[in-house]
Design a binder for these strands. Structure first.
Lengths: 345, 345
DNA sequence: TTGTATGCGTTATCAT
DNA sequence: ATGATAACGCATACAA
């Protein structure tokens, strides 16, 4: 029969068994140099034997530090975020930090809840990609930032905040590079399937498209651009709509891989050849791009690097003694990945 | 200037401001009926004003309950797990539970670490889909289960444990249904791309294939079955290998959507028509199945339902007073989703 | 209805 | 090198 009603072993239990004091056990378990090597090993052996599980939350309560990073993303089943999180975990692992992931499901109300929950769990820092339903969490974030709480935004950052510590990619550059690639391949009539323009990531991809077209002296008219709403369905409809217009495109730059693939599918069903009759390039470099036929060219957003850097900056802010000023934004460069769907004309 | 060095508001701060006692504040915040409606509102208003953030870990330490569920999956960027987690969160939300998600990256050593971490974080229950690198965590799980700790496995469960509380799908039935569907469509020479047979999910899908073939009196010989290793690349090679054999298949049932799609791609590149020359059906019902052309038929594993049920059972085990016996396994039925790739012959 | 006292498991500051 | 003690923020049994 155990000493206590709960069967959980604590440092007190170990101390009791060994005729020691709890503080010694605590020190031994934490590899404190003050405690003799002999007792240290004794304690560790006993801890193993008694199946001791350190209570991290008690330690966190006492220390005021949990060694935990909180992450909020719109949805973890989006491969981009999955890969960002992978990068975060890699970096956190190396620094002895745990990672807790929450989903906002693109609702800013839920995002706020998640932030509260994570703060209640005493996370030492926050990594956030804000919901598309960009609500009024700005106050919250402004307060958090100016209170000196370690926070890093990534990918989709709150738009109307002045100084935001963030890691983002240069979407405009990405849009430019994708379009430029098509131009270099010899295409002239290039259409753009753009995303909702109130989201700056989509707005910037569109601006990059315009940059490249203008630079090359190519015409952009009402027929060239079409806005898509939902990722999944509308690529097909968008393509069919484009194809009906009086000046048919030779190539399409889509702001999303999903609509690119579904547009491509619509093209194939019309009996068109890709890229001979119509070329495609998407954005995000989703894993399935390699699987479809023809394989879809795209723009890679370096999600793993993004996660690593964001985590690194957060951890630095946490561990550095002096309350340094919030880092400003760091901008990553996107990279065009050329596959079959945008071969030379 | 704040009363304390730390700027975090505690119930003591609120009590001080209001000339009350911390316990009253605690009660008020928890909607305890004992405290008068008036003070309750007063406290809540003050809490809001002072931007009070409840310290959940302190509460958890005191209560011995964290209202948190720990989830361990091989990788969150696999859409199946993403959807299971969605189901878990839905269920947990409704019951006032938080969810912490960790990844094992298919390493049982890391899986063990994650379990320890989560237990250290005082999660009230554990939901686990075990790593493919099925190591020797059996002792750990056996101990956990018999100690009465609320734990639920899902999808991939530890194989060599007798009584395992788990929610799984009937993979054998799924393999049978997929193959049966092809048979019903009129195909006779049906090949199977099977996964590593030491994993029972793949073994069962293979057995289901055999069931259906045998039932229909169709021949299965050495040419019919091929084992694939990595999801991504080997579908192509596997298909080319199958196509070289003396009896070419008319249809292929692949144990994974990834290899099905990449096999399909290889077929298309050989100039074959799908499904006229060769039909395909995969397994898992990945989202990209709808996007590829032709759209890939597959077997749906009901991931959201799986998550909901697993969470529900875990929460029930947590909240029910009596230490009831561990639930045994609950088996979900998979559903064939017919798309273009397996049209009638 | 509210206040007082205690403890959850750990770590840090003393003292020895 | 080790022990005694207090404190982290909260919830609860008990007292008033």
């Amino acid at each position: 029969m155990p000493r206590k009603k709960s069967d959980k072993t604590t440092i007190h239990d170990i101390a009791y068994e060994l005729g020691l004091n709890a503080s010694t056990v605590s020190r031994a378990l934490n590899d404190n140099l003050a405690v003799s090597k002999k007792t240290r090993e004794l304690v560790k052996a006993k801890a193993l034997e008694m199946n001791y599980q350190p209570n991290h939350i008690a330690a966190a309560l006492r220390r005021g530090r949990s060694n935990t990073l909180g992450v909020v993303v719109p949805a973890i089943d989006r491969s981009f975020f999955g890969r960002v999180i992978r990068g975060i975990e890699e970096e956190a692992d190396g620094a002895g930090f745990r990672v807790i992931v929450c989903q906002s499901f693109d609702s800013s109300a839920r995002e706020r809840e998640m932030v509260d929950t994570l703060r209640g769990l005493q996370v030492d820092g926050l990594l956030i990609s804000v919901a598309k339903d960009t609500g009024d969490n700005l106050d919250l974030y402004q307060k958090l930032i100016s209170s000196g709480f370690p926070i890093q935004f990534f990918d989709n950052v709150p738009s109307s905040l002045e100084v935001v510590p963030a890691v983002i990619i240069d979407d405009r550059r990405g849009g430019y590079a994708a379009t430029r690639h098509l131009i270099d391949q010899g295409y002239k009539r290039i259409a753009h399937l753009r995303g909702p323009q109130h989201l700056h990531i989509y707005r910037n991809r569109y601006l990059g498209y315009l940059d490249a077209m203008q630079e090359a002296g190519l015409e952009v008219n009402d027929d060239s651009v079409l806005e898509i709403v939902s990722h999944f369905d509308s690529g097909k409809e968008a393509f069919e709509e484009l194809w009906k217009r009086k000046t048919r495109p030779e190539a399409i730059f889509s702001a999303s891989d999903f609509s690119a693939v579904s547009g491509m599918k619509a093209a194939l069903q019309l009996g068109l050849r890709v890229p001979e009759d119509i070329a495609f390039i998407g954005f995000s470099n989703e894993p399935f791009n390699e699987l479809v036929s023809p394989a879809l060219s795209s723009v890679d957003q370096q999600p793993i690097t993004m996660g690593q850097i964001a985590a690194k900056r957060a951890i630095k802010a946490i561990t550095s003694e002096d309350d340094e000023q919030p880092d400003d934004r760091l901008v990553l460069m996107p990279a065009v990945v050329v596959r079959e769907s945008s071969g030379a004309k």
